[in-house]
Design a protein around this nucleic acid. Structure first.
Length: 777
RNA sequence: GCCGACUUAGCUCAGUGGUAGAGCACUCGCUUCACACGCGAUAGGUCACAAGUUCGAAUCUUGUAGUCGGCACCA
């Protein structure tokens, strides 16, 4: 190589060239490969630096030659390590140049030095060109100062072993099981695979100071305490490392340090109390009936007292946010495995991020934050809590006051429904769940409050228990179906689904229908005296008054018991409200508690979570109730569309099968009340005046409401036409599907059958409605 | 640059192969004795766009556009 040859490199920080200790090229680069091993003069200095070959250099990028500044660039540092290059610090900690930069630059600010280097290059004719180039700069979050990479001593944690432990857990056991699994499991695994050693030194004035001490010669002594360090140093005077531990290092110990770990897992604890807690945990797991997660037995039982660590580690589930997975969750997993040999936890639920109203992450600079305290004041703690829980697992959501308001209203609804039940609870009381089991008609009645009330002349009807009404069987079925679905949803961490189910059950089923259906029975209104004929007849010889009272009391106990179960189901999501209301229910006591806690003061917190009972799910009752609901809804629709005044009573004519007639007869009082009718005429066919509004029901039933003088024929025609059109749209689609030979051949038979049934139903309804339209003319 | 997510009614969001849902807002009616933070009845969607797989797609595949996130940022 001739003495005049040059290599051109590019840099965004010209002043760092003063600290260059090599030029690197790609060993495969034809242009430069012969230069490897030679040296080159570094301008502005008197140094001669080597040319090294390193795969790090991308021959395609820039000039294909890179200046190497090991003390001021992380990548260069690694190149330096590979080639044993000196690490020359040319800057002070305040980003001014130091003596190593040479007398011309010593003491200059980096930016001044930068300009001066460029100037000198220009003077020397060494500058090829200056061009604009966009890079991302590391900037101090608080003071906005541009951060310069600089060589310094830091403590690192070797991660290889712990990383492999964590990867092994994921690969062999799938632990932790992330929920939602996608994309977190993949991201977590990829992160671990690329994990580098962990810097735990932090240059902060607060925190846990690193337990390393230095003597005057710079020798290091790591110890648990300063005394021990001094002892290890043979009494020499020591100074402690000024840095503090990364906050996540301390936090990473949390999963097991909270259970009394201190290097010895055989922490002596009160044996009895630990064993009890183990029993409680097992029992709680059973009672929740949320799958068969077993609690691991303490190792070497009977050898030493089980400690909290033995009993509670690993925990079941950790709930956290996305950004915490690397910082904290992974560290807990690795450190726990390393120090205790155990898993930290089985499952990790990753919640979404609550964004500001502008759809961006909340931050002070954007000023789009939501203060939870404001929400508590405005909507209540329970409403805020259930709103947050109602967000789909893992989904980000824009904060929405309307959403919280929805649950504030729900809380109000629960309060008012309970208030209604309590206003009409005289003589009644919660019994155990066994009350609901009477729906199966197999066991003798165990009616809470009945014995006490008997003194007041409340007498059971002859033959024991009153038959449950359709509404009773229906709500009990709905309750148990909901409970089962809620358990399943919680078990799979689908909290939003559980909440949706409970919201619908409580508001629509319980409040809008059940309370309204049994209201008169409970308060002693009209439907009560008119609708319980069978009970009264059976009890004729014990006196009507007593039986009426008995029936009312048992209805009251029934609704309270359903309510009590609903409050339990809602309790995890609305703890304060449900506890408050539960305490007010007559007959609640610690006898309702989970068996392990019978002696504790009564609280809803210690009752078992309703699991739902298949035996109490009654599809027939649900389907029959659906017919009643449909009938009432159709009549209400006629009332609304025909502008019938709320106070006007009307009569309902129904043509239906004998089975359906029987259902409507049994629920006549309730239908009349809720449809605001004073008469129901049931028969095999309709015999009504032309001036009637009509509708069809599922199952071939037909109804008519005579509206002499009230009907608007044009309006009624439009109303019927509108319904026909809607049904026709669906029929057309079904016809299209069913006329497709491929569908009929390949789709599952039951699906085809289902659609055929639906088609027939639609055709029948359309025929009827069309006939109704013609009859109007 | 690499990886990923999201796009459904006016708004905020559910819905992973079989007739599109909720809350709020909108329209109409209601001092119905638990609740107007309520009750009753309506209306409102080519499920971002395109192609493919399938008897059948909001749902599965691929591509496009837009929005957002994570990682790497480089001489």
């Amino acid at each position: 190589m001739r003495a005049t040859d040059t290599i051109t490199v590019a840099t965004t920080r010209p002043e760092t060239m003063l600290g260059d200790t090599a030029v690197a090229v790609n060993p495969k680069d034809e242009r430069y490969k012969d230069l490897i091993g030679k040296t080159i003069l570094l301008p502005l200095t008197d140094r001669e630096i080597p040319i090294v070959g390193d795969e790090y250099v991308d021959a395609e990028f820039g000039t294909g030659a890179v200046k190497i500044t090991p003390a001021h660039d992380p990548n260069d540092y690694q190149v330096g390590e590979r080639h044993n290059l000196p690490r020359l610090l040319v800057m002070n900690e305040d980003a001014t140049m130091n003596a190593e930069a040479g007398p011309d630059f010593d003491g200059l600010d980096r930016f001044v030095a930068r300009a001066k280097v460029v100037e000198r290059f220009e003077e020397l004719g060494l500058l090829e060109r200056v061009e604009d180039y966009e890079i991302t700069l590391p900037v101090c979050e608080r003071c906005k100062t541009i951060v310069e990479p600089i060589l310094s001593d830091q403590w690192f944690v070797k991660m290889e072993e712990m990383r492999d432990m964590a990867l092994d857990l994921m690969r062999t056991e799938g632990v932790p099981h992330f929920s939602p699994q996608v994309p977190h499991e993949k991201v977590y695994t990829a992160w671990l695979e690329n994990l580098k050693d962990w810097t735990i030194s932090r240059q902060l004035w607060w925190g846990h100071q690193i337990p390393a001490w230095y003597d005057a010669e710079g020798n290091v002594y790591v110890a648990r305490s300063e005394e021990q360090a001094i002892e290890n140093a043979g009494g020499r005077e020591l100074t402690q490392d000024q840095d503090v531990l990364d906050t996540w290092f301390s936090s990473g110990l949390w999963a097991f340090s909270t259970f009394g770990w201190s290097g010895d897992t055989h922490v002596p604890t009160d044996a009895a109390s630990a064993s009890e807690r183990l029993a409680d945990k097992e029992e709680a797991a059973e009672n929740r009936s949320l799958g068969d997660k077993s609690v691991p037995a303490p190792a070497e039982k009977n050898v030493h007292s089980p400690s909290d660590l033995d009993v509670f580690l690993p925990t079941d589930v950790l709930v956290t946010g996305r950004d915490i997975i690397f910082l904290w969750v992974s560290r807990m997993i690795m450190l726990t495995k390393k120090f205790t040999g155990k898993k930290a936890f089985e499952d990790v639920i990753v919640t979404g991020t609550v964004l500001g109203k502008d759809g961006k992450p909340m931050s002070k600079s954007r000023n789009n934050g939501v203060d939870p305290i404001d929400m508590f004041d405005k909507f209540g703690v329970d409403a805020t809590r259930i709103y947050l829980a109602s967000i789909a697992t893992g989904a980000d959501i824009k904060w929405n006051d309307i959403g919280v308001e929805t649950y504030r209203n729900f809380a109000n609804k629960i309060w008012n429904a309970t208030r209604f039940c309590l206003m009409n609870s005289e003589g009644a009381s919660i019994s155990s769940e066994s009350l609901l089991q009477q729906a199966s008609f197999s066991s003798p009645p165990v009616l809470g409050g009945v014995a006490a009330a008997s003194a007041d002349g409340v007498v059971p009807p002859e033959g024991g228990t009153p038959n449950f009404s359709l509404a009773d069987k229906w709500i009990i079925s709905r309750l148990n179906k909901t409970a089962k679905a809620v358990n399943q949803a919680i078990d799979t961490y689908q909290f939003h689904e559980a909440i949706q189910l409970l919201y619908h059950f409580f508001w629509d089923d319980f409040c809008d229908w059940y309370i309204e259906l049994v209201k008169d029975e409970i308060t002693g209104g009209d439907a009560f005296t008119g609708g319980k004929a069978t009970v009264r007849e059976r009890a004729s010889d014990v006196g009507e008054e007593g039986t009426l009272a008995y029936t009312r009391v048992s209805a009251r106990s029934r609704i309270l018991t359903v309510l009590e179960q609903a409050l339990r189901l809602l309790h995890p999501f609305m703890p304060y409200l449900t506890e408050e209301l539960w305490q007010k229910l007559p007959g609640v006591s610690n006898s309702l508690h989970n068996a392990a806690y019978r002696s504790a003061a009564s609280t809803i917190m210690l009752t078992s979570f309703p699991a739902g009972d298949d035996a109490l799910i009654d599809e027939k009752a649900e389907s029959e109730m659906q017919s009643v609901i449909e009938l009432i809804t159709k009549v209400r629709n006629i009332r609304a569309e025909m502008n019938i005044k709320a106070g006007d009573r009307l009569s309902i004519h129904v043509a239906a099968s004998s089975e359906m007639q029987a259902i409507f007869t049994a629920n006549e009082a309730q239908i009349k009340k809720l449809a605001r009718a004073d008469k129901i005429v049931l028969g095999d066919s309709l015999d009504v005046p032309k001036a009637s509004a009509r509708a069809v029901l599922t199952g071939g039933a037909e109804i008519a409401v005579p509206l002499e003088g009230l009907i608007d024929f044009d309006k009624e025609r439009d109303r019927l036409q509108n319904q026909i059109e809607k049904l026709d749209v669906e029929l057309q689609r079904l016809n299209g599907q069913l006329s497709n030979a491929n569908f009929v051949e390949r789709a599952p038979a039951d699906k085809v059958q289902e659609l055929r049934g639906r088609k027939e139903e639609l055709e029948q309804q359309i025929i009827t409605l069309k006939a109704n339209v013609e009859a109007l003319v």
